[in-house]
Structure formats: C-alpha cells, structure tokens
Amino acid sequence: MADFIKHPVVGLPDRKPDPVIPADQLHFSDEEKKQIQTWISRYPTADGAVMRALWLAQEKFGFLPPEVVQLVADELNIPYANAYGVATFYTQYFKEKKGKYVLDVCTCFSCQLCGGFDMLHYLEEKLNVHKGETTEDGIFTVQEAECLGACGSAPMLQITNGTYVHNLTEEKIDALIDALREDRMPAFTSVTLPQDEDELGGNRRSDVEHTEAYQAGPVSETTR
C-alpha cells in the first residue's frame, strides 16, 4: 500500500493476450467437472461456485490466464466477464505465471510496526529480486501483502496462499529459503495466545503438532 501511494499507477490489463495454456490441455477432467457440479448444487445460482472453481483451476494450471478464466466461466455457464471480475478482485488468484513458491510478506499495520518491511527488504536482497518479481530460477516470487490476519505473531509471511511463517527473523528466513529450495514445506504451526499457556500445556489446538507460544513484545515506557 505504501508503495501504491508513491507510485499510484494502475495498469491496463493486456486486452488481447496470446493463450499460454495449449488447447489440448485446456479442459477439466471428468472428476473435476463432477466436483464443480457438486459445488454448484450447493448454491442457489452457479455464480456461487465461481470462487471454488477458479481455485480448482489455479491448482490445476498453476495460474489463471484469460483462457482458463473462460474455461471456468463456460463450465459454470456464467458470463466470462463475471468470472474475470472475480479473478481480478482477489490477489490470491494469480493472473500471471508466478514462481513455484510465492512469498507474501505482510507489511500491513502490525507487521509494519514490528519490522515487516525489514523482512521484505531482507528477502528481496537475499533473493536478488524486487517485490512482485520472480527469481531467475523460477522458484520464488516475493510479494508485499496486505493484512493476513496474524497480527499477534507479526511480522509474518505466507507461502503460496497456504502455510504461515510467524515471528519472522532474518535467521528464520534463511532457514525457510534453504528448506524450500529442498522442497521441504514448513509444517502448519498454531500460535497460541498467552492466556492459553496454562491450559492444555499451552496448546488449545490439540489437533496440531506444531505450536509456538505467542511472545509478548517489550512494552514502551510511555504506555506503561
């Protein structure tokens, strides 16, 4: 957002892009079609299933070029324009090809105060890319993200619309990058709140293996 204030320019989408998915691959399998029909049956109109269907398409094709959005629209029998509007609304739908791992570093309010930009810049320097860019080997894309709802464990980042990495430090980023290069995805980690620490051994989420206790930061002299 801060960058957007400095360079407040919105781009025009490519109006006549060449297709990137070969025509012979551009279809859903019977199983996927059946899945989409199940989703459609859960809503009063087919529009309701557009987000799940787009998500399925993104998992299948990696990203959502216009021809894939068209495919989803045709499958749901809704106007192409509707599906395209939904796809552009959410940053989690990738409209262009991204790296294998997309690192969304939160720089929104809480993370910014706790060093979100330091983490972003460290990552940019370490991978030698600017935010929004993909490394030359095509493994990492670094992005700046708005609030991801984990302010308690700020600063944090998210890996490809999935796993969160909490309480970021430079060391943690180093370890994360090394692990991802070896395709070792960090496990889901539940961050518990301080008041939980006395109960259940500090972990209310008995269903997850990895927990990390919330660390209360130092409180400023003036607020004390």
């Binding site: 106007p79 509007g85 552009t88």
Partner: peptide
C-alpha cells in the same frame, strides 16, 4: 455481459 469491474479498492 461484455463489461465487468476489475481489480478492487482504489
């Protein structure tokens, strides 16, 4: 159905 609103927010 030729038009839609794209992107979000500002």
């Amino acid at each position: 159905d030729q038009l839609t609103i794209i992107e979000r927010g500002v």
